[in-house]
Write a protein that binds this DNA or RNA. Structure first.
Lengths: 129, 129
DNA sequence: ACCCATTGCGTTATGGCATAACATGAGTCA
DNA sequence: TGACTCATGTTATGCCATAACGCAATGGGT
């Protein structure tokens, strides 16, 4: 497992994501980093691309937003499930072996060669219920 | 089970979706319907809202696009899984009882009250493999 | 028949999300 | 040195989605 050195921009974006409890859009990250010299969306998107690629952040498709990975060590063998609270917008991350193998079964049954999955749940979290 | 009457616009959008094998964005639907008097995105989005609500169409979050429902009778008790081929962009739809109960288990374990799920798989379909 | 609530329609304008294309600079390695 | 890679900065552009307005048609309920 190699440590990966983040550039200054990547570090700034990562810090911004980590400091937020709820997902942030690229543009809201941009706004928070204007004081640090950020001026264009691309500066954010490029950093996000890298962070997502190395697994330090995740993109939430249903929100067009991003979160810091809260999984201590993201298990590459399992699909990640995101639970997005409709009330507080906070996001919980989970993974489950049975779910992942089930997903693979579903794909296999359709002769579909699975490479990645987007699993985003909506509902209400325990704190808000 | 009540039959639902579609308006002219809704019918046009539905026909367009049904005629396409792969997902369509709202704007590409708009382009295909300009000859039928469509002029603005909202005309498409309003029809799509309705079609999605009554289950005749689905929104694919990871594509920002829409597909006609290919499920003969969409089972409300099961979550729908979309398999999107990276090669041909075609989409297959499936559902599975085990997967749905697994998903609920994962949510329960996090004290999350599940109301809806987005499950979109990427990979390669049988025809393209 | 009347009112009223609901639903859909059409238009203009606006806002949010994301990337293309081009040029620059820093670091590595043969 | 030269070629290559990766990150950066900037401008411009394009796609996705909705706000806000007003109007038209429908369908109960009294």
């Amino acid at each position: 497992m190699s440590e990966i050195a983040l550039t200054k921009n990547q570090q700034l974006v990562m810090n911004t994501l980590s400091a937020s409890k709820s997902p942030l859009s690229a543009y809201s990250i941009l706004d928070r980093l204007r004081g640090d010299g950020f001026r264009a969306p691309l500066q954010v998107y490029r950093a996000l691309d890298k962070l997502v690629n190395i697994g330090l952040a995740h993109r939430l498709e249903s929100l067009n937003a991003f979160v810091a990975c809260s999984h201590p060590a993201c298990d590459k063998h399992r699909n990640t499930v995101f639970m997005i609270c409709n009330e507080c917008e906070n996001v919980m991350e989970a993974s489950d072996g049975d779910l992942s193998s089930n997903l693979k079964d579903v794909a296999d049954r359709s002769d579909f060669s699975l490479s990645s999955a987007t699993i985003e749940l909506r509902g209400v979290c325990g704190r808000c219920a």
